[in-house]
């Protein structure tokens, strides 16, 4: 009897939980905050400042999402996730959106049953070498010793790239970025390779940054972006279009500072985006009419977020490069907001 009592209680719990998981957006609104999974530490993308506040490029995306839903960029609960638990945390509902510099790949999209919302940052594998080596291109690294983290895709990319260009290299395996850096500084290898965004961050904090150069070639595609669970298209739409709105805002020159001056703009798309016109576009997603206005007002457009976390003001000094609006020679191109 007791056993059946336990079972029925368990069943009730399971049933109510099942009902509650109807729509992620509705759940989020009812809960009052966004559950966002971020990295356990990736310079520029996700970290905490000295006062304990979450900061970073990925963090700001979640803040924009929260601002769009709640008009409050602080209505986010950040869960730091290591790379080994990130997908299960998303699948099990511990977080509702994963903004954790995750590379968009075919198998992650299909086999792991996730929906990628777009690309927030086009990363790729780069190389750092000492200036004294006198090279200005990766193609001049023929015969060099290269420090490489074992067991990563960077290892395979490196092999592919050198083979394709008919060059040879001597690999020096390391366990992580920290060890690569130490070996490289000790002179054990001529160059070291990892994601270009990490190379920039590491270089700036070396004893003499000018002694080192991040070579211009990018040898792999690492499109990083936020992702959600399969099967909740409404929630995926919200996440995707908040990202698109940030990109459109930069394209149109809308920043957090000047956003209010667009109230009498002639551009109809701006009114649709900011909810300042007659059309309530956001209602199609079940969002407040001025959602995108709030996101841009509180967090800024894509360019501002980039500048704050990865650009010159952040101290990391990554060039915009391809991560620039298509109107400025980059490849960021949002579908129209109509």
């Amino acid at each position: 009897m007791k056993k059946s009592l336990f079972l029925s209680v368990a069943a009730i719990v399971g049933f109510t939980a099942g009902v509650a998981a109807a729509g992620t957006l509705d759940d989020t609104i009812a809960r009052g905050h966004v559950k966002c999974g971020v990295s356990t530490g990736s310079p520029g993308f996700s970290g905490v400042d000295d006062s304990g506040k979450n900061v970073g490029f990925d963090v700001d995306y979640c803040r924009a999402l929260a601002a769009a839903i709640f008009n409050d960029p602080m209505a986010v609960k950040f869960t730091p996730l290591s790379s080994s638990v990130r997908f299960t945390a998303l699948a099990s509902g511990e977080v509702d959106i994963l903004a954790r510099n995750t590379t968009w790949t075919y198998s992650r999209d299909t086999d792991l049953k996730q929906t990628f919302l777009g690309v927030t940052y086009y990363d790729g594998q780069g190389f750092m070498a000492k200036t004294s080596l006198g090279v200005s291109s990766t193609l001049e690294l023929d015969g060099a010793t290269i420090c490489i983290q074992v067991g990563t895709t960077t290892e395979l990319n490196l092999a592919d790239y050198f083979k394709a260009n008919g060059m040879t290299y001597e690999p020096l395996p390391t366990s992580d970025n920290a060890e690569s850096k130490q070996q490289y500084l000790a002179g054990a290898c001529d160059a070291y390779t990892t994601d270009a965004s990490a190379l920039h961050g590491t270089r700036i904090n070396m004893e003499n940054p000018d002694d080192h150069i991040v070579l211009p070639e990018i040898v792999s595609k690492e499109p990083l972006g936020p992702l959600v669970r399969h099967g909740d298209d409404q929630w995926a739409d919200v996440g995707r279009w908040v990202l698109n709105a940030l990109v459109i805002a930069e394209e149109k020159g809308i920043t957090s500072a000047n956003i209010d001056s667009f109230a009498d703009s002639k551009d109809a798309e701006i009114h649709r985006l900011l909810g300042t016109g007659d059309d309530d576009m956001m209602a199609m997603m079940g969002m407040p009419k001025d959602g995108m206005y709030n996101a841009i007002k509180h967090v800024g457009n894509y360019g501002e977020i980039f500048e704050r976390n990865l650009g010159a003001t952040s101290g990391i000094n990554i060039e915009r490069g391809v991560n620039n609006s298509w109107t400025n020679g980059g490849i960021l191109y949002s579908p129209p907001f109509r």
Partner: peptide, 8 residues
């Protein structure tokens, strides 16, 4: 590692 994620 989280502290190192701050560029400072």
């Amino acid at each position: 590692s989280l502290i190192r994620a701050d560029q400072k």
